[in-house]
C-alpha cells in the first residue's frame, strides 16, 4: 500500500508538471517515477520513513479550520504592526501537549508555527516551547481548541 500510493502520487506530479500527454512523455514520466521509487526503497533500508499519510476527510476539515484561524491571526498581527504604539508583549514559555503520536505532534507544532503570532521553538516529550507575540495568542493556545481538533482526527 505504501509504495504503490507513492508511485501514483509521483506520476500525477509528473503529469501536472509536464503538461504533455503524448506517448513518449508518458513513458519518460513512468521511467523517472520508477527511478525515484527505486532510490526511495534503497534509502528506506537506512531510514524507515514514517509512512504514507492517506488523505482523510477529517484532514480537509481541519485544513479549512486552520485556514480560518490563520486569517484571523493575520489580521490581528497586521493590526499590531500598523498601530503606532506597537502593542506587542512577547512571551516565551512551555505549552503542555498531551498528543503522543508523531504525525499529530508534527501537525500541531507546524500549525502553531503557521499561525502568525505563535511560533514553536522547541519540541519536548510533554511540552512545546512557544514564542508568541501577545498574551492573548498564548491564552488562545492554552485554551486548547487546536489540540482538541487534532485529537479528534485520531492521529
Amino acid at each position: 500500500m505504501y509504495y504503490p500510493a507513492i508511485a501514483v502520487t509521483l506520476y500525477l506530479f509528473w503529469l501536472v508538471l509536464s503538461g504533455h500527454f503524448s506517448g513518449f512523455f508518458l513513458l519518460l514520466g513512468a521511467i523517472s517515477s520508477l527511478l525515484v521509487l527505486f532510490c526511495l526503497r534503497r534509502m528506506d533500508r537506512v531510514d524507515r520513513s514514517p509512512g504514507f499519510v492517506p488523505p482523510a476527510p477529517g484532514l480537509f476539515a481541519y485544513g479549512a479550520w486552520l485556514l480560518w484561524s490563520v486569517v484571523r491571526s493575520n489580521i490581528d498581527v497586521a493590526r499590531r504592526i500598523w498601530d503606532p504604539s506597537l502593542p506587542i508583549d512577547p512571551q516565551w514559555r512551555p505549552l503542555k501537549v498531551a498528543l503522543t503520536k508523531p504525525f499529530g505532534r508534527a501537525l500541531y507544532a507546524n500549525s502553531i508555527t503557521l499561525t502568525p503570532g505563535t511560533l514553536t521553538t522547541d519540541v519536548h516529550p510533554g511540552h512545546f516551547n512557544i514564542h508568541c507575540l501577545s498574551e492573548a495568542a498564548m491564552e488562545e493556545l492554552e485554551e486548547g481548541e487546536m489540540e482538541r481538533r487534532i485529537r479528534r482526527l485520531g492521529r
Binding site: V71, P90, H131
Partner: peptide, 17 residues
Amino acid sequence: FPDFFTRIHASGVTETL
C-alpha cells in the same frame, strides 16, 4: 519589530496569507 523572534511573526504575515 524589536528583536529576531518577533520579526519571525512579521515575516509569517507575508508568507502565510
